[in-house]
Write a protein that binds this DNA or RNA. Sequence first.
DNA 1: CCTTCTGTTCCGATTATAGGAACACTGTTC
DNA 2: GAACAGTGTTCCTATAATCGGAACAGAAGG
Lengths: 250, 250
Amino acid sequence: MTVKTLKNSLAILECFASTENALGVREISRMTNMHTSVVQRTINTFTEAGYLIQDESTKKYKMGYKMFIFYDVLSHSSDPHSAIYELMQNLASEINESVFLTYMDNEYGVTTKIAESSKNIKYAVSLGTKTPLYIGASCKVMFAYLEEEQQLELLAYFHEKQSEEEHKQLLAHLKNELQTIRQHNWCMTVGEYNEHAFGISVPLFNNKKEIMASLTISGLIYDMDEQREKYMLEQLLQVSHQIQSHITKL
Amino acid sequence: MTVKTLKNSLAILECFASTENALGVREISRMTNMHTSVVQRTINTFTEAGYLIQDESTKKYKMGYKMFIFYDVLSHSSDPHSAIYELMQNLASEINESVFLTYMDNEYGVTTKIAESSKNIKYAVSLGTKTPLYIGASCKVMFAYLEEEQQLELLAYFHEKQSEEEHKQLLAHLKNELQTIRQHNWCMTVGEYNEHAFGISVPLFNNKKEIMASLTISGLIYDMDEQREKYMLEQLLQVSHQIQSHITKL
DNA sequence: CCTTCTGTTCCGATTATAGGAACACTGTTC
DNA sequence: GAACAGTGTTCCTATAATCGGAACAGAAGG
């Protein structure tokens, strides 16, 4: 039992999350395959409530101030009592590196929880950071579990100038790596997301066994050696099983 | 032309912005004066979309990961091309202190734009920070323009343990200060929000001449003297008129 | 000056929502 | 342990809100 009207409305709102540009009514209508009349009324409501504002000159719409009211709660939402966050913190202090929880959202990975290491040099990822789904361990490990069709759509999304042929070549290039990720059930990258950083990630799935999120250890490559790498991976896999069981219960 | 269903749904979602606690269906039903059946369906939809999640043990709901997808856009939304932000930045560099834009949202002031000074010691307010509406210059200057009835409601909200009599006494105590704010059209506090900080604020109104937001200069009290104070106030008033005219056009 | 965009509004047919009632479950009280 | 008050959740139908076609007003471009 859900509310169809709300579901559609949220689809409209989420158009604004993918771009900083102002969007027009008919533009959104095309993006969502909804009638301009519906989009218009929905946008009016969002605007009245402060979620969107209309640009005075272009008449187009962009994000309003209202979203900020959730900001404060979300910043503190890594509550220490949350079982998942607790597990992440334990892991972070055990290995003395930062641990990230990244959710999949359409074409991006979104960082939703961070358990920071006690090290002084903090790794420059903040809550809510969005990364294209095939860059860096935390995203690549999710990309690997998508169906080929979806993978191609994603590549097309980020390389719109290239042809479909080129996308297939790109994917063929990644194929071996992606297969290895699925075999191991983890992914490691060095200097991919950031030239000074490494990332080790494992996938997390929902009830339907679809890929949903990833758990990542990330730190500076200069602190790394083979032994630590092995140890961190072991710890990560162990904790991810515990977190997985929590997620599946949701 | 607005969508009633969406309007109600947003009212439900916003219940979660005021608290970090998990909320129950009937609890929200009471808060919003909507039927449990309606709340239930709405919450189901939000949950399915990832905006809310259900706590496995208590069965109650709290904020989900989905709001984070707007985080990234909002962080960068202080776009340098925005006329308002440009004015704020000019002011910030002119007086060499940080400038804040604070929106009113129910019982709180929400920081939505920040133009930082070039000073090394950054003032500890980040985007989205929520402050009770009667604390600090940025909020007090908005509080002063509310009707007495609303002011009492607000005091009741934050001092629920006190009686209505005590609220009226509290308000009477503030009465002179609030009148002075309205006469001057600005408000200054020293060491109120933070013991090391001062704030100078002016109000901003919407088309209907209702109080809507405030513009604030804030910095460390140790850098202050009478002459600077006077200068900053002049500059602030001047810029606020320009910003006001932009806001009214919205 | 016509065409083709844009945002916006109107109105009747359609359909999704509202709200009462009931269910299953938990914890409390006597 | 039975009665009770609380919870989240689901079903149903009259009703009220949404949908979607069409048209309007304005802007931009050739």
